[in-house]
């Protein structure tokens, strides 16, 4: 956490925040499309599948950026948090394909919750740092 102060100004941290934010936006579409599908809106299937591809891809992008943050700012937490998230999203992807709804639904909720926590975390830190702490 000591490295948080100066890493807040680094470009890699800005990129990381941007990717986490985009990730939150994209993943929030998934329950929406699932709801559309289960209400009989067949197009929800295509959107949910596209959303799954986008979300999972962004997860891997976030993982790469987290590695950069780790290397440049010597901060490992984003990497570890993203690693857990990417693992969850990968399982989630295949659980969805296999129709294992008992896993797909709770894991989906937990994944979004975890990502929202990360989102709050990356922006909260930067605010504190901008405040000149």
């Amino acid at each position: 956490m000591d490295t948080a102060v100066d890493s807040g100004t680094r470009p890699s941290w800005w990129v990381y925040r941007a990717v986490v934010s985009a990730h939150v936006v994209v993943i929030s579409g998934q329950p929406v499309f699932a709801g559309v599908l289960l209400s009989g809106g067949y197009d929800g299937l295509r959107l949910h599948a596209a959303g799954a591809n986008a979300t999972t891809s962004l997860g891997y992008v976030q993982l790469v950026v987290a590695i950069v943050v780790w290397v440049r700012a010597r901060r490992a937490w984003p990497f570890l948090a993203t690693l857990a998230l990417v693992a969850a999203e990968t399982v989630q992807y295949f659980a969805g394909m296999a129709g294992a709804l008992w896993l797909h639904l709770p894991l989906g909720v937990a994944t979004i919750a975890g990502l929202v926590v990360q989102f709050v975390d990356v922006w909260r830190r930067s605010l504190r740092e901008a405040g000149g702490e």
Binding site: A4, W102, P106, V109, G114
Partner: peptide
Amino acid sequence: MSEITRRRVLGIGGGLGLVAFTGLTTANAL
């Protein structure tokens, strides 16, 4: 960040993780 805050952060994270784990294992069992 103080040591207490870090402990709290770890506590919150662990709590959320435990909730998620419990949910998934319950779903699995039921």
